[in-house]
Amino acid sequence: MRQAWVIAKREVRGLVSSPGGWLVLGTFWFVAGLLLVSLLFRFRDGTIALAQSGQLRTGESGLHVNDWVIRPLLYNLGTVLVLFVPLLTMRSFAEERRSGNLELLLSQPVRGADLVLGKFFGSMLGLALCLSVLVVHFAVLAAVTRPDWGATWVGLGGLLLLGLLFNAVGLWVSVLTRSQIEAGVLSLGALLLLVIGPGANAEGPNWTQSILGSFAILPRFEDFTRGLLDLGHVAFFGGVILILLAAALRSVDLVRWQG
C-alpha cells in the first residue's frame, strides 16, 4: 500500500508540473465559477420576482440556497466531470505504456494491485484538486446565505463518489491503450454511455427497464445532491468502483500476457 502512495504522489506531481495539468484544473475552476455565478443570479432573480409578487416567505417553506444554488451546482458539476475526468485519467496508464515506464515500473518490487491503486489514488487527488474550488464557493455562500450544511456535505460526498467512479472508468480504459488520445476519447464515450445510456432514465413496470434502471447512476447521484444519504447508493458506487479497479488490474495482467 505504501508503494501505491509513492505512485499516487508521482501522479499528482505529474499533473501539477505540466502546463496541460494546470490548463485542465484552471478550466474546471473557471467552469465551476461560471456555474456558481449563473446560479446566484438565478437565485437573486427568483427572490426578487417572489418579493415583487408578495409571495416571498422565509423559513422552511421559503426559497433556500441549497435548492436554488448548491444542489444544481453539485449536479451540474457531476455532469461536467464527464468531460474533465477523461482529461485527468487518460495519461495514467496509456502514457506509461507508450513511454516504456510501465515496463520499468513493473520491474520494481511493486504488485499490480499497488500500481492500480496508486494510479487510482493519484487520480483521486487530481479530482480533489479540481473540486477544491468548492471550498471557495461554499465560503462565499456561507458569508451571504445560510446553507444546510448537512445536505451540502452529503451532496459533496455524492459528487466525490461519482468522480471516483468516473476515475475508475477512465483508469480502466487507459490500461487498454497506448495512446492518450484514444484513452481520452474512449473514456468520454464510456462515461456518456453510463450517464445518458439506456439505464439512465429507465422507469416503469417493464422488467428490462427496471433492471437497467437499477444500474442508473444519475438518479442515485441526484439523491445525494438532495441531501439524501442512502447507504444502498454508497454501496452501489463503492461496489462499481471496486469492480472497475479489479477490471483494471486484470487488464494490467492482460498487458503482461500480450507484451
Binding site: 510501465l102 515496463e103 513493473l106 520491474s107 495482467d253 503482461r256 500476457w257 507484451g259
Partner: peptide, 9 residues
Amino acid sequence: LRMLIGFQY
C-alpha cells in the same frame, strides 16, 4: 528480458 523481469508472462 521482459519475461525475465516479470513484465511479460
